[in-house]
Design a protein around this nucleic acid. Structure first.
Length: 275
DNA sequence: TTCCAGGCTATGT
DNA sequence: ACATAGCATGGA
């Protein structure tokens, strides 16, 4: 995709495949919002970006443009992917509906903690819990970085039980201790199946959460997470045949192949926005 | 009040 | 290998 970089600013010159609302409002990541001036912002790791809409482009203003070029996956042409996915007649109008969605390349560790919190939960409360978790992160400018494992693993169990995370507090506590002895940079080089098995060994991480972490935290686009919304999409638009969630996941990953995760986002966004 | 939210673990068959 | 109760919390 076409973009230019000037100092702390990225100019995204192609509005046909970049839209901050569509990209952020589908719950890939949870540390985002709208400023008082109406612009979207997003925090990732210790960085923050604000996206401003201009007449013919978007401006991404941040404290690390290089990081956000990768984060928003700006070197990938989503219009090519969209054309391929639109061969599916059911998906096609949903691709048009979420034309500006991009799969974010978020931080793997941040995704692990975030998606442990996400299970059997709603996006608004997930955001609230994560922001509370982040109060222990390093202070950067006027916000908090997402806390590192080193920090979280030093916190007592009371810290986690006071997040309002419900029964998930023990998962977070245990995950922080577990990840202390794990080199995620080494894991990033492994195969998708190997990473999947590693993630599944974390208590509180099941098939859906592991798939989300792989998709958003490890850039594995072939994963298709199935949650309650996707289950609805399946029965509302694809088939009446009753299937378990793993079977629904297999069905879609077989249908959409290496771009399954992107297809999943169009479906998820469409189903939620048109409710 | 009951149901639901980006589900998982534990415990049955 | 598959089915299901129970789980913390808050909003509709």
């Amino acid at each position: 995709m076409i973009y230019e970089v000037k100092d702390n600013k990225i100019l995204v010159l192609d509005k046909s495949q970049f839209n901050p609302k569509q990209t952020l409002e589908c719950g890939q990541v949870f540390r985002f919002g709208i400023n008082s001036d109406g612009n979207y912002f997003v925090c990732s790791k210790c960085y923050r970006a604000t996206i401003i809409e201009k007449k013919d482009c978007y401006e991404i203003i941040s404290n690390n443009p290089e990081y956000f070029i990768n984060y928003f996956d700006l070197n990938t042409d989503y219009n090519l992917i969209k054309e391929k996915l639109k061969k599916n007649n059911v998906l096609s109008p949903m691709v048009d509906y979420g034309y500006g969605i991009r799969i974010l390349k978020a931080d793997s560790e941040e995704m692990i903690y975030s998606y442990i919190i996400s299970q059997n939960n709603n996006i608004k409360r997930i955001q609230k819990i994560i922001e509370k978790l982040c109060t222990t992160g390093d202070v950067v400018e006027d916000y908090h970085a997402f806390p590192m494992t080193k920090t979280l693993a030093s916190k007592p169990s009371e810290f986690f039980s006071e997040l309002g995370a419900g029964y998930r507090d023990k998962f977070l506590y245990e995950a922080s201790r577990f990840l202390l002895n794990v080199d995620l940079d080494e894991i990033k080089n492994k195969s998708t199946d190997e990473i999947y098995n590693f993630l599944m060994s974390i208590k509180g991480v099941g098939p859906k959460v592991a798939s989300c972490i792989l998709l958003f935290g490890f850039g594995r686009m072939e994963k298709f997470p199935v949650d309650t919304w996707i289950e609805q999409v399946y029965y509302n638009h694809f088939s009446d045949e009753k299937k378990s969630r793993p079977e629904i996941q297999k069905y879609f990953e077989n249908e959409f192949g290496e771009y399954s995760g992107i297809a999943q986002q169009y479906l998820f966004y469409y189903e939620r926005e048109s409710k």
